[in-house]
Computed example of a mutant assay.
Amino acid sequence: MTTQNDRPAGRRTGRRPGTSESRDTILRAARQRFAEHGYDGVSLRSVAKTAEVDPALVVYFFDSKEGLFTAAMRDALPPETLLDEVLAGPVEECGQRLVAAFLQRWETEPTRDKLRSILRSAVSHAASAEVVRGFIAEEVLDPLAKTLGGDNPRVRAGLVGSQLIGLALTRYVIEIDPLAGVDAAHLARVVGPTVQRYLTGELP
């Protein structure tokens, strides 16, 4: 039976020319290429060459380079799972749960390598940064802010996004001390109240 992972985004018909294993191979190659060459320096053909598959298979699964980059992010940071974790508890503690869940993914291999390759591409290339911002805002933070019911959900989502991306950049990519060495659970307790205020507190 064909699963959701076996199908490319935006396509639901036609003979499946590849397997979920082929899809995973393409995603691994894409993350490698994006990390080494940035978003602008990667083409679907170059990813296909690295993955040793037909370029048509990359198009079949992902449609476009943006679709491929977004799929790589979704693979590393599944929004549905993250939202379920954040919303599973008292509203007044969702900020800490969000930071804890976010850090937990960065603390775990192979997810850390997946996220690091994406973030390195984003900070060095404007096009990939735009895709990352759109993914985090539209698929994770906008739905969270709207579910919590606060005013100005897009502003709240943007503030939370700036906090999380900045935290990941300084801790896991640039590795600035002492932030890089602080225990993740402790860091979630420290940063959580700030994220909570962004999500549900009064904004000036």
Rank of each mutant, 00 (worst) to 15 (best):
Q4M: 07
P8Q: 09
A9W: 09
T13I: 10
R16H: 08
P17N: 09
L27A: 08
R31E: 06
F34H: 09
A35H: 06
R45Y: 10
A48V: 02
D54P: 03
P55E: 07
A56L: 11
K65G: 01
G67N: 05
G67F: 03
F69K: 02
T70Q: 13
M73D: 00
A76K: 03
L82Y: 09
D84S: 13
A88G: 04
R97Q: 08
L98P: 11
A101Y: 05
A101F: 09
F102Q: 05
F102S: 11
K114C: 11
S117Y: 06
L119S: 06
R120T: 13
S121V: 01
S124Y: 05
S124C: 07
A126M: 05
V131N: 00
G134W: 02
F135W: 04
I136H: 04
L144M: 04
A145L: 04
G150W: 02
D151R: 12
A157W: 00
V160W: 01
L167D: 04
L169R: 04
P178Q: 14
G181M: 14
D183R: 14
A184N: 11
A185K: 14
H186R: 15
H186T: 15
R189L: 13
G192R: 09
P193T: 02
T194F: 06
V195A: 08
R197D: 11
